[in-house]
Design a protein around this nucleic acid. Structure first.
Length: 454
RNA sequence: GGCCCGAUGGCAGAGUGGUUAUGCAGCGGUUUGCAAAACCGUGUACAUCGGUUCAAUUCCGGUUCGGGCCUCCA
């Protein structure tokens, strides 16, 4: 094998593309922010799942070991409210939502992380971390809350490039009266009667963690005080990731929580961000139902991960066309670890340039269609790093839709081919039209007739 | 108001200081009973105005337009 290619990643901390230098080449450690489980994910939520799944596949290709952690947030006010609205228990809501989440990401072809911790499993770690922050003077108790004091951290604002004065000037939110500084954020807050809560040393009443502390605690547990990569959507840069950095660095007396911070751009609808508050959501499960998971995945990888990505129906139709072409070329080729393509790998190593990588796949498909069997193997092998082309071309063509039974289709094709052999083209064409009306498309090739679902 | 990002051919979408992105769609051809698929060929694209340069879509500055964060959000 050749030397490890150089991987370059755009680091939000520096604002530029940097050479990736692992802290420990024997174990690459990466953390991505996972879902808050009060509702199914939409395709905007699906983008980081898919994009960082590709990153982890690439890292696993480049390095002997990768530890990938993606949390599940199962304590949050949105969960409390949704459970009340639906009149079900929080446990039930979380269990159902997590099951749906797993179904969705499996359909999208994303591998599970090595660890998928739930926030409620780490309340003790959070309490200890908050305790340390209080001891060190970075946090204070006020009216049953524990707040992080941003004034105690000179580097606060570095990730999101914002100066404290600007934030104060621009603050539109009402500032809680017990905050020493309007930018101070909640580490721990009191819970009312039936809200989830835990006994704690900060107050005589039960309480629950603020939003950010869970990631600091879980990342520390699985990955240590300093790790390689922290990833998430670009809207998490501020305040979530900025606050994680503040908590972790102050609690651990480190300057660096993660060396590289990666953020994906939004999925847009029209010209706007797809978001809950705008109400323009397309749920992942709905997109998967009409277009298949692999098609949605292909659509999500069509644009560079940091650019905004529009995914209208026409984009998913085109993604389907792309997969039809690639699957036709790959046929039933197997993958081969010797078949990785330097151009393809170089594209992914250039800050995960999936469009350039897809272009290389198309070139391989062209070569395979010209009769180069090695190209088909290479196509299958390299596409695997994108989590694509995992099935055979035939299985893809026939799809999962069973409106018409396969044996019926094949019987009709046999009848038609008999008619063709008899030069009875009127009958042959009638059968083809009839199947087409049922969404079955025929292709007569030198090796016989193949079919696929439209 | 502060900070940040973007503007590429009919569409999607990379990239580059001077030479083909790629795919879809279109057009012409090969092949095919026909069709489909495949293959071959085919496109004066880089918002705008200045500047730097022998040369700018690519670097710098201004303008216009669009988007994002500053509030839960991937």
């Amino acid at each position: 094998m050749t030397d490890t290619p150089e991987l370059h990643l755009h680091n939000t901390l520096s604002g530029v593309k940097e050479l990736f230098v692992p802290i420990d080449t024997a174990n690459i450690r990466i953390y991505a922010c996972g879902p808050t489980v009060y509702d199914r994910i939409h395709i905007g939520n699906a983008r980081p799942i898919v994009v960082f799944d590709v990153l982890v596949r690439l890292l696993r290709h480049l390095y002997p070991r990768v530890t990938y952690v993606r949390n599940i947030t199962d304590v949050d006010d949105k969960i409390i409210n949704r459970a009340l609205e639906r009149d079900i228990s929080i446990d039930r809501l979380c269990a159902d939502t997590i099951a749906n989440f797993h179904d969705d990401i499996v359909a999208l072809g994303s591998a599970p992380p090595d660890y998928e911790p739930r926030a409620t499993e780490f309340i003790g770690d959070m309490i200890r971390m908050i305790g340390r922050l209080i001891e060190k003077g970075h946090a204070y108790v006020a009216e049953g809350h524990v707040l992080f004091s941003v004034a105690t951290m000179p580097a606060y604002g570095k990730l999101s490039r914002r100066a404290m004065d600007d934030m104060i000037a621009g603050a539109r939110v009402e500032v809680a009266p017990y905050k020493r500084d309007s930018a101070d954020f909640v580490l721990w807050k009191p819970s009312d009667g039936d809200q989830p809560g835990w006994d704690n040393p900060f107050s005589t009443v039960r309480g629950r963690p603020g939003w950010h502390i869970e990631c600091s605690a879980m990342a520390r547990h699985y990955l240590g005080e300093t790790f390689d990569i922290h990833a998430g959507g670009i809207d998490l840069v501020f305040p979530h990731h900025e606050n994680e950095i503040a908590q972790s660095c102050c609690a651990h007396d480190t300057d660096i929580m993660a060396k590289y911070w990666l953020h994906n751009g939004f999925v847009t609808m029209g010209n706007e961000k797809m978001s809950k508050s705008l109400g323009n959501l397309v749920m992942a499960c709905d997109a998967i139902k009409t277009h298949r998971g692999e098609t949605v995945r292909t659509g999500l990888l069509a644009a560079h991960y940091r650019a905004p990505a529009a995914l209208p129906d026409s984009a998913l139709v085109e993604a389907r066309n792309v997969l039809d072409r690639l699957y036709r070329a790959v046929g039933d080729a197997s993958s081969d670890t010797d078949a990785f393509d330097s151009g393809f790998i170089a594209a992914l190593c250039d800050d995960l340039n999936t469009p350039a990588a897809m272009a290389r796949l198309h070139e391989l498909a062209g070569a395979a269609n010209r009769g180069d069997g090695d190209a088909a193997t290479a196509l299958k092998t390299n596409a695997g790093l994108l989590g694509l082309l995992g099935q055979t071309g035939d299985d893809w063509a026939k799809g999962a839709d069973n409106r018409v039974d396969d044996t019926v289709i094949e019987a009709r094709i046999a009848t038609r081919n008999q008619a063709r052999a008899n030069l009875d083209f009127a009958v042959a064409d009638a059968i083809r039209d009839e199947l087409a009306a049922d969404g079955i498309l025929l292709e007569d090739g030198p090796d016989g007739t193949i079919w696929r679902r439209a």
